[in-house]
Simulated assay, not measured.
Amino acid sequence: MSKIKLTALPCICADVFYGSEIIRPGGEALNFAAHASHFKDIDVTLLGVVGKDKYAEAIMDSISKLDIDKNHIRIDERYQTANNMTYLTESGDRYYKDDSWNGEILDNIVL
């Protein structure tokens, strides 16, 4: 039986928790690839772009041990890695403000 070849693209980003040093890697493509990598009959490739910053480091560290082909994640030093400033209510629920999202790197992506 041959393996399924799966490519996840393009949203790789980080949730940054306001007022802390907490960075949580995510984005639709990253989350999908990470989940799919746990199945032995799937070859997973993650295709996307990150900046050269602490968000990219957190993302790459988080997937370093996963069985994902990371050779198609490009570094674009002109932009910050896509990120979403995440706020917490007193009860711990997440919320976002209108200007929370910084996805300029994805607005200008060239695959």
Score class of each variant (00 low, 15 high):
Asn71Gln: 09
Leu9Met: 11
Leu111Lys: 12
Ala56Gly: 05
Ala29Ser: 11
Ile23Phe: 04
Ile68His: 04
Ser37Ala: 12
Ala82Met: 07
Ile63Phe: 15
Leu106Glu: 02
Tyr18Trp: 08
Lys5Arg: 14
Ser20Glu: 00
His72Val: 02
Leu66Gln: 02
Ser91Pro: 11
Ser37Ile: 10
Thr45Ile: 12
Gln80Phe: 15
Asn108Arg: 15
His35Leu: 14
Gly27Trp: 10
Glu90Pro: 14
Ile12Val: 11
Val110Trp: 07
Ala33Ile: 05
Ile109Lys: 08
Ile12Ala: 06
Ala82His: 06
Ile63Pro: 14
Asp61Arg: 05
Lys5Pro: 03
Arg24Ser: 09
Leu9Trp: 12
Thr86Arg: 02
Glu77Arg: 09
Asp43Glu: 08
Asn102Leu: 03
Leu106Lys: 13
Leu9Lys: 05
Met85Pro: 09
Asp93Met: 09
Tyr79Gln: 03
Cys13Asn: 07
Met1Tyr: 14
Glu90Asn: 13
Ala82Trp: 06
Asp98Gly: 08
Ile42Glu: 00
Ala29Thr: 04
Val110Arg: 14
Asp76Cys: 09
Tyr87Pro: 15
Asn71Phe: 08
Leu30Trp: 12
Tyr96Phe: 14
Ala82Pro: 04
Ser91Asn: 03
Glu21Tyr: 14
Lys54Tyr: 14
Ile42Ala: 02
Val49Cys: 07
Met85Val: 15
Asp99Glu: 11
Ile73Asp: 00
Leu9Ala: 04
Val49Arg: 05
Cys11Arg: 10
Asn102Ala: 07
Ser91Val: 11
Ala29Pro: 12
Cys13Glu: 03
Ala33Ser: 06
Val50Gln: 03
Gly92Asn: 01
Cys11Phe: 15
Lys97Gly: 06
Tyr96Glu: 00
Ile42Tyr: 11
Leu106Tyr: 08
Leu106Thr: 08
Ile4Ser: 01
Val44Thr: 02
Gly48Tyr: 12
Asn71Ala: 09
Gln80Cys: 10
Ile109Thr: 01
Gly26Trp: 15
Asp61Pro: 13
Leu9Tyr: 10
Ala58Val: 10
Asn83Leu: 07
Asn102Thr: 08
His35Asn: 09
Tyr95Arg: 10
Leu46Arg: 02
Thr86Pro: 07
Ile42Ser: 01
Asp53Met: 07
Val44Lys: 00
Leu46Lys: 02
Pro25Asn: 03
Ser20Pro: 09
Thr7Ile: 15
Leu111Pro: 06
Gly51Ile: 06
Pro25Val: 04
Thr86Glu: 00
Asp76Leu: 11
Phe39Asn: 02
Thr81Arg: 03
